[in-house]
Amino acid sequence: MKRTLSVLAAVSSLLWALPAAAAPAEVGQPAPGFALKDESGAQHSLAQYRGKVVVLEWTNPECPFVQRHYASRTMQKTLAALGGKPLVWLAIDSTSTNTPEKSSAWKKEQGFGYPVLQDPSGAVGHAYGAKTTPHMFVIDEQGVIRYAGAIDDDPRGRSSAPTNYVRQAVEAVETGKAVPATTSVPYGCSVKYKGNG
């Protein structure tokens, strides 16, 4: 039985890795598993972070929306504000033309510590249905997606006190409360996926 199960799991994870038009990830559903290398070559899988709250941030340093949020240090400040409990923050770049070198240079320039996972094939981006940069996902300790959408309610960067959806979702998950807004319409540049053919 054990062996059958592991074979089944191996086969299903293999199929999962293929880029295919699967139903996109949804709030309330288990988060699609993945295993990606970061800019330094280290492997990260969603399974290894089971038991911790995970934030996924789709990113692209060439996108002005991402640039605006990094200029105002939105992501770093959000992470710092949530410093109380173990939290895993993973940036994912599904831009077809991105390279680990570009990610490293950008990470150095912006001075943040979390890894930038390399997804140039777009397989993981498609599995999550990531549409924009930034596009955020909050996954709870059991591996269930609890929030999907924008980082905040301020697409144009005009508000002095925007509502940070990711921060409020993570705080709700950590305290066992209902997430106030489980989805929002993400805004930003489209993810620059690899074209067909």
């Binding site: 299903s12 999962w16 699967a22």
Partner: peptide
């Protein structure tokens, strides 16, 4: 003994894709 949880959303999706 391990629960016979052969089911998973990924397994369903994989079979349907096949």
């Amino acid at each position: 003994p391990p629960a016979a949880a052969a089911w998973s959303p990924e397994a369903v999706a994989a079979e349907l894709r096949a």
